[in-house]
Design a protein around this nucleic acid. Structure first.
Lengths: 111, 111
DNA sequence: TAAAGTAGTTACCTTTGCGTAACTATCAAA
DNA sequence: TTTGATAGTTACGCAAAGGTAACTACTTTA
C-alpha cells in the first residue's frame, strides 16, 4: 500500500500514519513546536538529519497542510517554516511521545 | 542513520521514532488498545496489512518491550499479543493521533 | 575579484519497509 | 487419508526512505 493510499483509508489511524508514519517527520514537527525556523536552523537543530531528507519532508508536510513555508524576498533569501493550525494541534501529542520515551528510557538505565 | 541508532540518540523524540517511526507499528498498537489479540485476529482487524509485515512488526515491538507474546500450548496452537505497561502508556497518545485526523479529515470534506 | 552566507537541488546509491504468494508444522475431525 | 484451522516463515522483488556529496543562484562583504 502506498503512502497516498493510507491517506484515503477508512481508518483514522491509518490516515494519520499516511501523513506522519516516517522516522523524521514527527521530529521535524516536534522541533517546530515552540518556534518558527529557517531551513538552515532546522538542519542545525535536528541532529543527524540530512538536507535532502529535510527538503523532501518539508515539502510533503507542506502538501499535507502541517507546515507553512513563508518566503521573504530579502537578500540573502530567508525562508521560514512554521506549523499550521493542523500542525499545532499535534504539538501536545508530539510532546507526550517524547515524554513517554524519557520515562521508560530512564527506567531501563536505573534497573 | 539506522533504526538502532535512533534508539540511542540523545533526543527523546528521536528515540521514540526509533521504536515507532513506521507506517504500521502505531496502527498495531492502536489495535491492541482495548483487547488482546491473536495473530489471525490482528491480520483480520487491520485492513490491508500483510502477514509478513505483521510478523516482523510484532517481533520488533516485542524486542522493544511494547508488546508481550503469550504462547499457549494448545491444539491448534494459540498465541496472544498484548501491550506491556510501556505499550499501554502509548494508548492515550495513539487515540489522540486518530482523533486528530478525524477532526481535520472532517474539515477537509465539509469545506 | 574572491569568499561567504542562505536555501536549497541534483545525482547516485544503499537500506528499509512493504507486498505477494507459496510453503511449513501440528493435530483433530471427517 | 484428506481437509481444515492456527500461526507463522520464506523467497522474491519493488518502492519509499534515507545518506553523501557536489553543485546552483543570488548578493554582500572583504
Amino acid at each position: 500500500m502506498k503512502r497516498t493510499d493510507f491517506k484515503n483509508c477508512s481508518c483514522a489511524m491509518q490516515r494519520s500514519m499516511g501523513i506522519l508514519g516516517t522516522r523524521w517527520k514527527p521530529i521535524i514537527i516536534y522541533t517546530l513546536r515552540d518556534r518558527k525556523a529557517r531551513f538552515g536552523q532546522l538542519d542545525a537543530l535536528i541532529e543527524n538529519i540530512s538536507r535532502k531528507v529535510l527538503t523532501s519532508s518539508l515539502k510533503e508536510l507542506e502538501e499535507d497542510g502541517i507546515i507553512l513555508r513563508e518566503e521573504f524576498k530579502e537578500l540573502p533569501p530567508r525562508v521560514e517554516y512554521a506549523l499550521t493550525e493542523k500542525g499545532k494541534a499535534l504539538i501536545p501529542i508530539m510532546c507526550q511521545l517524547a515524554k513517554w520515551n524519557e520515562e521508560y528510557y530512564k527506567e531501563e538505565i536505573t534497573i
